[in-house]
Amino acid sequence: MLTGYTIAIIGGDARQLEVIRRLSEWDASLYLVGFDQLDHGFTGAKQVELDDIEPDQLDAIVLPVPGTNLEGHVDTIFSNQTVQLTEEWVGKTKEQCVLFTGITNDYLTKLSNEQKRKLIPLFDRNDVAIYNSIPTVEGTIMMAIQHTDYTIHSSKVIVLGLGRVGMSVARSFHALGADVSVGARQTEDLARVYEMGLKPFPLHSLKDAVADCDMVINTIPAQVVTAAVIQHMPSHTLILDLASKPGGTDFRYAEKRGIKALLAPGLPGIVAPKTAGNILATVVSQILIEEIGERGSQHVGE
């Protein structure tokens, strides 16, 4: 339970609605900024503007997955409000106030350092990334089916990267009957690919590996699917790039060659916002209890 906690939830997409619902169910007092166009309310939650909040009452601030831009502005999909998270405003919060974001940037990192507030980029956590790999895989399968005229079964699929998402994608496409090869840089990752019963290859030989592939699924946030690589692909190859923007694919050259290449970051929020929001809410509540649990119990006793 989060009785006694006061939390501001600022902006976001459909995932934030599930975060609001769950935190409200757990009895937190919520201020919602950037949700005035919603056609329903949440028990225990107040829709306000940022200036209406007394910052020194806040135990936590929950930002959307993208956090802010480099000027501190927050996307508010459910509002026409312009919301800016400033250093001055954050400086008025409790010293123990925790800032949650999906991913951070130079602005948020600088703000938290200068104001000495704890910043937690949720997507840097292994637990969140592993949980999110589930809807990411389902979204990748959906896109693969939508954008091809052949089955996944028996297709030659190349997965680039064996991180938390890459491992789940490789395993799932293999389970669907695809002929899966995995490209990685680290020798230990190549050993793990072999142990999984898949075909490993070093990234430096990617040009050779794609010569007869049907699908390339990239999870590496660096330019790995270059023009030189795309040049060696069959014309029917589908490229699904799951890396964060701008991805790891030369999309200009892929279009020039007539190869379909799709950038698809943030699939959990697109294909399963309820599940993705539930993941975030669970982790946020766990961290709050760990970080300020003692102070929260004092609130309850007062």
Rank of each mutant, 00 (worst) to 15 (best):
I145R: 07
M233C: 14
C213E: 09
A8V: 04
I145Q: 02
D106A: 12
A45Q: 07
A184E: 03
K245I: 09
E18Y: 13
V165Q: 01
N132M: 13
I61G: 00
L176V: 10
W89G: 00
L17H: 09
L85F: 08
E291D: 14
G296K: 07
S112V: 12
L288W: 00
D241S: 10
G248F: 08
S205F: 12
D250S: 13
T82N: 10
D27Q: 15
L262R: 06
L2W: 02
S154A: 13
R125W: 08
K46L: 09
V165M: 07
K92Y: 03
T140R: 06
E291M: 08
F78K: 11
E255D: 15
P55G: 04
M215T: 09
G102T: 08
I20T: 11
Q37G: 13
K274N: 10
L242Q: 09
D124R: 12
D13Q: 12
I103S: 14
V33A: 05
V283L: 12
K46V: 05
K256R: 12
P265H: 09
Y5K: 13
P135N: 07
V159K: 06
P273C: 11
F251C: 05
Q96G: 07
I287M: 13
E302A: 13
L38F: 11
V210T: 03
H73Q: 14
F123D: 12
N132A: 10
M215K: 05
P265I: 07
D27H: 15
L38S: 10
V182Q: 08
A191C: 07
C97E: 04
I289A: 06
K92W: 00
T76R: 11
S155I: 03
G197I: 03
W26V: 00
E195H: 10
H232R: 15
L108P: 05
P273G: 12
R257A: 06
Q37A: 13
L38I: 10
G296S: 03
E114L: 14
I152S: 02
E88M: 03
R125G: 12
